[in-house]
Nucleic acid binder design. Sequence first.
DNA 1: GCATGATCATGC
DNA 2: GCATGATCATGC
Length: 441
Amino acid sequence: METPKYDKTSPKSILKFASGLTGKSLAQVVELDTFKENIRNKGDLGLLVENYYFQHSPGPVAGPDFPEAGVELKTTGVLKKNPGNYKAKERLVLKMIDFENIVHENFESSSLMKKCKLMLILFYLYDAEKPIYDRKFVLDPLLYSIPEDDFPTIKRDWEFIRNKIADGLAHELSEGDTFYLGACRKGAGGTQEKLRKQPFSSVGAKSRAFSFKPNYLNKLIESHESESGNMGVSRGLTFEEATQKRFKPFLGKTVPEISQKLGYFRKAAFHKGFNQDLCIRILSNGKSVAIELDKAGIEMKTIRVNPDGKPRESMSFPGFKFLDIINEDWEDSSFFEKIEKKFLFVIFEIDELGVERLARVAYWNMPYADRLEAQRVWEETKRRVLIDATQLPRQSESHVAHVRPKAQNAQDTWPTPQGGEHVKQCFWLNRNYIANVICKL
DNA sequence: GCATGATCATGC
DNA sequence: GCATGATCATGC
């Protein structure tokens, strides 16, 4: 009998054996002929690695792939960012969410933790042209357990998802609900006819899985690449607490005071993004960009409010091209992508004397019903672009969103399906809508 | 050069 | 006062 190549009971031994794949594709290290014909590009590389490289097949079990070592094997695609730099191609799916059982669980003893407490993550270079067994593993394998600094945030994310299901709102789950751990769409049960049952509501819900969000994964990769290991928020704090802590010394201060304190000053009288620039500096300690926000895929927006509590302006989003939107689906649109995110609102209040102060910071994500309304506006925009790209939904037509110019000037245009040119546009969240949102925060 | 977040300006 | 139209500074 052949001597085993690794010790199934030892995470370190499994890790060491896995590193034999680094720099190679699966096809380069195992005999392929037996299975090659049966594999499509979309197959599960993790399963193949487990079967053919580790020669290990535990069968369908609820726990980790290597039960004795408590190690769950994951493979995930990465893209090349710069030479030697990688980023996640997509979220890393961890485990399906069991709507029925999760409501009886707590995080530490949850089925998610049972399965994914310790994970061996292998990164392969994504290449659509190649079958999965020809894609090369890049980077060393990562033996991952939740870093202490990330634990409070991930636990909070998990609890948020569980609580939403316990409240009978599984159908309203959204990736914007959480910071690092997301409830992503996964598996059958996505279409109207095939929705899943949930325990505390008769409304069908889309099937979902726990996943690490792409931005969190990127930070894991980044720190794995550099081995510098400084993964973010202050010890023992949740994400929200850590952000509050950063802003705390500046709350109640006027904009010039903050400017002074940070040693960062207006470059021009009309420096439009000045408050935003200040906030980036508050969050980044003067160095690189706001690392925690980036990691969690959070969208920071500054809002200036008048003495009456109303924002001065509507909130703009990235622009769109008329010729693009007519071929897009809502769920692929950049507007959808943005409003699904979690927002960090930094609110500046302007008093009667015109003095502007950093009043408060708060997280927010768009409620389900409002996302549906935003979708309606988006669909209506798409419909009208085809008819007349100059007649788009106005603020008066929806309580949530509208379309308005966003360009350098009136000559800054995109071509229209009608064969003309029209000034560049973007989606906006209505001023009054934002007013309602922030007064409840 | 251009997209982006944000704010200014005008007319009703 | 507000909705709509127009534009700015910045960073990549």
